[in-house]
Design a protein around this nucleic acid. Structure first.
Lengths: 142, 142
DNA sequence: GTGTATGCAAACTGTTTGCATGGAC
DNA sequence: GTCCATGCAAACAGTTTGCATACAC
């Protein structure tokens, strides 16, 4: 369930939940939008300046491995991550190009088999990312 | 048309077609699959060892700007490019995970509006990449 | 002739790694 | 007590930039 997987204890799976990792995970969740590792490090170091960059990188790798954090795109050569709370179920992402808000999206590929048939490819995997404006940004016209 | 846009003269648009750029563009086309800038530089420098890496980077930027070359994914931290010949028309890519062959694919998102409606997002852009095995790799069982 | 493209090397950015120390379990 | 996680700094990989020269147009 999304509610359960939102819990920080799930962020690192079997890994240790150190104060630094807790700070990093809370920072990721509080950002509430897509972020680069740099964004995350900045937020985490604001809360605890003693946290090193290497720790942030290692923590992100760990959180990505458990699926608590997901890659949702890239910006200026850096990977964008987000904690969307959709858990293990197959899904994609809606990313607001204005504020960076990320929402899980249902998989829109209902006829992948048809494509395989026409091309001769057997499709084993796919990536879909939808970009747009979220309701809040639409309302403010930004 | 794909046939016209396949021509090297279109690769750099209004830019100059120098011998180096011609070599680089021909290398890109002859690879016939997704490649990193490193792969391309290796192929181009095999043909003309005097070509510098910076020139390859600059040429790729130019070819990407005209749409002659497209980003089709990433591998080990580097962007994957391909010359798929689909021209200006809206399309996505089928990438063979075994040999790297790239084929243009029709856009499989026929009901994007429905997603916008349920989420409140207005979708302005999207990225889709399909991964799988091409007929040749299926036949050889690789 | 003008201005873009080139090659080289240095500079940069983002990321990873080695190692001694600290602390979660 | 064991072993994973940390912080620091050095190392690294990929990419970009400055500059003088060459050449496409």
């Amino acid at each position: 369930m999304a509610a359960i997987r939102d819990d920080l204890t799930y962020a690192f799976g079997a890994g240790r939940l150190t104060p630094q990792r807790q700070t990093i995970a809370e920072s990721a969740r509080s950002l509430g939008r897509a972020f680069t590792i740099d964004d995350l490090a900045e937020e985490a170091r604001y809360r605890d300046p003693s946290i090193g960059v290497a720790t942030v990188y290692r923590a992100v790798s760990a959180m990505e491995a458990t699926g608590w954090l997901e890659r949702v795109g890239e910006r200026a050569g850096s990977v964008l991550y987000a904690q969307c709370g959709a858990g293990d179920r197959h899904h994609h992402h809606l990313v607001c190009t204005s504020c960076g808000r990320v929402e899980p999206a249902e998989c829109p590929l209902h006829d992948v088999a048809a494509h395989a048939a026409t091309s001769g490819f057997v499709i084993t995997n796919h990536e879909v990312t939808l970009y747009g404006l979220c309701p809040a940004c639409l309302a403010t016209g930004s």
